[in-house]
Write a protein that binds this DNA or RNA. Structure first.
Lengths: 358, 358
DNA sequence: TTGTATGCGTTATCAT
DNA sequence: ATGATAACGCATACAA
């Protein structure tokens, strides 16, 4: 591989001069500047980033650590990160599929010397201590942390507000007996969404019936199972809030099998607004989560005030809104009618408009 | 940051010894080995990868270059790459959203010194020359190249065979007048899929009617537009092959608006088998593309025979099969019935079963 | 304006 | 078995 020395020799200057030219240092005569560029081009020279990183202590790269999750959420976050990173002319070093904090942390250490900052989506069990130690060396932004982590910045989703709004909407539609399919215990999102469910009921003067709070695990099949559990009960509800769309899908399919009509017999609302949501029958009313934006924000958060905002690094998270998208499954006249055909204009969904690749 | 010198000092040995211990060099006494590890642990030492890369000339990292494409395909490929890379204990440096080969190539150069190999999904315009030059420095695997590129390994999808199979199936179902919504001109996948369409017709003794070959651009809306174009024609077909699922979705929705029943009046088949496909009404018969596997294969291809297989580096691509998934939109009794409810067992779709994250 | 020399944190090649 | 020390490719303080 051709190095700075080769270029220097070819241009008949010292390596220092070559370095200056390449880094746009003004203290170089126009004539030699040209000579150097010519030589560099001719030799197809590209600086070795590893060497550069060693001296400058900057890599123009940010690391991304993700847990072992599948589905759109994962990829959307990456996409957002990538987009924002690209805008800042940064490269992205990614390492995903971490089962636990231990694994993620070890991956983070492996990145030492190759990244200027780290974005990490914390697995449930929050070994905050190790994270804090990590954050002393590198700036860290945590996505969706259980609670603020000292010394780390954070971005997260308005889980509580999102589910609160969804449930409030159901109540305003006239429902008084509501059930929910919640997510796994100890999962931050699940807990917050459940909290929003409870609070919305109470605020409207209703008491959440514990029998109507069934536990799922965010999978389609758990939503499927939840159906019988909810229906088999004494107090049969008229509306269900599923803590994510996957479970709502399972629920919908089970209800179809059982002959329960949606929204006629039972209103259903989900959470996430995954691409499939609007294609279901009926189209699913759900809470929008902009995962891509979440990733992009994380990057911006990392970039902003590398030394300022000392007091803002307390871990107080920046929260992304989670608005309700009303479609048909909740019984309201949704604005996003998509019943087999497509009548109303709707926002473009990148997810199914590749444009370039099939 | 703590360096190897700090550890050496703490353990009262030379940096050479520390290095040996860390790299499992056997020529070191058990006693000092322990001392060194103790010191390293105590100081929370992690080797600086940049420095390491500089001397060893290996980074244990592979680069991934992707064009500016959105949708599942993109993320699935990344997921596959990541998974395979993880198995090989490699890190992944990704840079996507490249509009053209120029941009991608510049990104590739920026990776110099940080990667041991490169996986790149070539944009349409194949500036093979630059790629070949690049490949001299680093091993390169091209995903879905226009044609074999000398010196580069390649993996791609059985586009031709896939569409051929789909169309053949339609013909066997009794259709004799078939239309297709093709992809953008100059797009490799589009061209191959169109070729498969034509060939299948000819092989079954049918002549493809040029009026029934309408050009789309892989977006939903282009599929939507295609509907009128196909129907408004003189010879109204009884079956349509869409070159990807996004266009099939647009098509389906337009047909719904026009009161054309699927598959009753018109059979529809897509390509890709995106997650949404089975939730459409009717569930879409389509050709399966395992994008994740594509990414994983690319990694394995990169790893295999770094010096052997000299003659296999001619660019002859490894081709991934693209089997037909029969559902309901083609009129056959699909095995994957998913009509609002869910009756038949079906393969797990990770895409909607996150399990951990909503 | 340009060149020399030092250091960045490792690994690897010598010695010892 | 261990320790100096020379690369690795680059940026930069200091000299000229």
């Amino acid at each position: 591989m051709t190095t700075i020395h080769d270029v220097a020799r070819a241009a008949r200057v010292s390596i220092a001069t070559v370095s200056r030219v390449l880094n746009d240092n003004p203290r170089v005569s126009e004539r030699t500047r040209r000579r150097v560029w010519a030589a560099a081009d001719r030799l197809d020279y590209t600086p070795n980033s590893a060497a550069r990183a060693l001296t400058t202590r900057r890599t123009r790269t940010l690391g991304v650590l993700l847990p072992d999750l599948y589905g759109e959420f994962f990829s959307e976050v990456i996409r957002g990160v990538d987009r924002a990173a690209r805008e800042a002319d940064l490269q992205v070093l990614i390492s995903s599929s971490h089962a636990n904090t231990e694994e993620a942390l070890s991956a983070a250490r492996a990145m030492r010397g190759r990244i200027d900052g780290l974005i990490m989506m914390a697995p449930d069990s929050g070994s905050a201590e190790a994270l804090r130690r990590l954050a002393r060396g590198t700036p860290v932004v945590v996505i969706n942390p259980r609670k603020g982590i000292e010394g780390c910045r954070a971005v997260s989703i308005a889980n509580f507000e999102g589910s609160y709004g969804a449930v409030k909407h159901l109540i305003e539609l006239g429902h008084t007996s509501l059930a929910t399919v919640s997510g796994p215990r100890r999962n931050v999102d699940a807990e917050e969404r459940l909290r929003g469910f409870r609070r919305a009921l109470r605020d409207q003067g209703l008491e959440p019936a514990e029998a109507l709070i069934v536990r799922g695990d965010f999978t389609e099949s758990s939503g499927h199972r939840a159906a019988t559990e909810i229906l088999g009960n004494g107090r049969r509800p008229t509306a269900v809030f599923a803590a994510n769309d996957s479970m709502a899908i399972g629920l919908l399919s089970a209800l179809g099998d059982l002959g329960v009509r949606v929204p006629g017999d039972l209103a259903v609302v989900g959470f996430d607004d995954i691409a499939i949501a609007r294609y279901l029958t009926p189209p699913l009313t759900t809470v929008r989560v902009d995962a891509s934006e979440l990733g992009a924000r994380a990057v911006r958060r990392l970039l902003e005030g590398e030394e300022f905002d000392k007091d803002d690094k307390t871990g107080r998270p920046e929260v992304l809104p989670a608005p309700l998208v009303v479609r048909r499954s909740c019984g309201a006249t949704g604005n996003g009618r998509v019943a087999g055909g497509r009548k109303a204009p709707r926002r473009p969904r990148k997810s199914t408009q590749s444009g370039r690749q099939p």
